[in-house]
Computed example of a mutant assay.
Amino acid sequence: MSGYAVRDGAARRFGFVVNVRPEKRAEYLALHRAVWPRVEAAMHENGLRNYSIFIADDTLFGVYDYVGDDYERDMARVQADKTSQEWWAHTGPCQVPFGAVAGVTGWREMELAWHMD
């Protein structure tokens, strides 16, 4: 994942998309109204900043900035966090891949089409 460099290379911005199961939409939104502090801490400790998730109908769009120097290493640390794994056990069943792309099982990285500072 390459992301898009913003602010003179100080951060890389990433965008992702996934659908939410219509019958799980309310549950997903309720979970995110009270995100577990350790989940946020794991992301923050590993360089994620300015993280937002938007929803339109049953499609979720997430965007964040990455401020570290080894994205793959830092994302592996987030993946290894036990509390984050438990969180995903709750949020994962609420999601279904966006579009028909072979091998994609969750959030799908989007390509930046335009950016303005």
Results as ranks from 00 to 15, higher is better:
F14A: 11
D117K: 12
G103H: 03
M116Q: 08
Y66R: 04
L60G: 11
A102G: 11
R7D: 10
E72A: 03
G15T: 07
D70R: 06
V20A: 02
T59M: 01
G15R: 10
G62F: 04
Y51V: 14
A76W: 11
M1L: 15
H115V: 13
G15E: 01
V39N: 00
E86H: 00
M43T: 06
V63L: 13
A5W: 00
L48K: 01
V35R: 03
Y51M: 14
F61D: 09
R38W: 14
P93F: 02
E23P: 03
E72V: 02
G15S: 06
Y71P: 13
E23S: 02
G99I: 06
D74H: 10
D81P: 12
N50C: 06
A34R: 10
V67N: 10
F14K: 09
M75L: 13
D69G: 12
G62C: 07
D65R: 10
S52Q: 01
A76S: 15
F14L: 11
P37D: 06
Y66P: 04
G3C: 03
V17R: 15
D8C: 05
L112S: 05
W114F: 11
N46L: 03
V78C: 10
E72H: 01
V20T: 14
F14E: 14
V17T: 05
A102K: 05
A113I: 14
W114M: 15
H32Y: 02
P97S: 06
W107M: 08
G62A: 14
L112Q: 03
E45C: 07
H115M: 12
D65I: 11
D57R: 06
R12T: 03
G47I: 12
D69E: 13
Q79W: 13
F16N: 04
Y4L: 14
L29H: 04
S84G: 05
V63P: 00
V18S: 05
A100C: 13
A26E: 15
D57N: 13
N46H: 09
L60P: 08
P93A: 00
C94W: 08
A80M: 08
R13N: 08
R33W: 14
S2N: 04
N19D: 15
L31P: 04
V96S: 00
A102V: 10
D70N: 05
G103K: 02
A56W: 05
R13C: 12
A80H: 15
D74Q: 12
E23V: 08
E23I: 05
N46D: 01
E40T: 13
D69Y: 01
G62N: 04
V63G: 10
R25Y: 05
V78Y: 14
H115K: 13
R33G: 15
G62D: 05
G62R: 02
M116T: 07
V104E: 15
R77C: 00
Y51A: 12
L60S: 02
A41M: 11
V35K: 00
R38K: 15
D74S: 08
A26Y: 09
A42H: 03
A113L: 09
D70T: 01
H90E: 06
M1D: 13
